[in-house]
Design a protein around this nucleic acid. Structure first.
Lengths: 135, 135
DNA sequence: TATTTGTACCGCATTAAGTGGTACACTATG
DNA sequence: CATAGTGTACCACTTAATGCGGTACAAATA
């Protein structure tokens, strides 16, 4: 199963489902157009309530990550929604700054953080670049 | 005032205080050894309950960001706590991957994300580097 | 001694998260 | 047409987190 959740995490379970689906898509574990588990089916699999899955799927649809069709099922979005530049950049600024601050208090040097970032990106793409172009 | 909170945010107010203090330190707005506002004083300033500030300060002390002295006040840590490598790197891995996934779904290209990261780091340090070494 | 500061409780209200259940609407299949 | 599979929409309920308001105590300082 490409989705695991921890009932005792401080992160709400519906949020873990959201993150898990997004992660699986970014990693290519599920392809655009592919069908996701049915709501009751996934709830059974994770031994959580179906309403919790409903909440997660609804949010994923709101973010154009999946498409929900009544009576047929839920599918990974085919034609990716294209957010405008303002949303694209502005939506990330806060998260990027937040990470920079977190790194500061963990005493992570700039180039080290950039290196980790590149490594994470490469992992997402299935590459294995070892060298880099850090200054 | 170097701290602003939004009572109607989905982020808990005590968490906003934590983030705000960390941010102010990372940006150099408050220096190591400097005294933070007294609990009741800050609560009055932000028009929130003193217990909320207590909760935030307690967490900041737990993370070795500030030091609390009964009867004297709270101060930004002088001798920064040095976490071991495992905590330093491992603690960031998850956040970095999370950001990479978020960027993926916003259709942000790798070099664009790296660029934003470098820019954020430079802002924290008060620099103004424009050029970069993106591939 | 008086003031400033942090600490530790208590009770209370509001909200988010999650459970369990039921019923209905739409689609595909036979 | 009937049936199975699916999403949708409620409802009532419990638990935990958040935040407020208040009071009292402890330690440092002037």
């Amino acid at each position: 199963m490409w989705l695991q959740i921890n009932p005792r995490s401080s992160i709400p379970m519906y949020q873990q489902v959201i993150d898990g689906v997004k992660s699986a898509i970014a990693k290519g574990w599920i392809q655009p157009g592919e069908k996701l588990p049915a709501i009751r089916e996934l709830a059974m699999e994770l031994t959580i309530n179906h309403n919790t899955v409903v909440k997660a799927y609804a949010e994923l649809e709101r973010e154009h990550v999946i498409e929900v069709v009544r009576g047929r099922g839920t599918f990974v979005t085919q034609q990716p929604f294209v957010p405008n530049a303002e949303v694209r950049i502005g939506g990330l600024r806060e998260s990027v700054l937040r990470l920079a601050i977190e790194a500061y208090h963990l005493q992570i040097q700039d180039d080290e953080l950039i290196g980790m970032m590149k490594q994470a990106l490469d992992e997402l793409h299935g590459k294995n670049r070892l060298g880099g172009d850090e200054s």
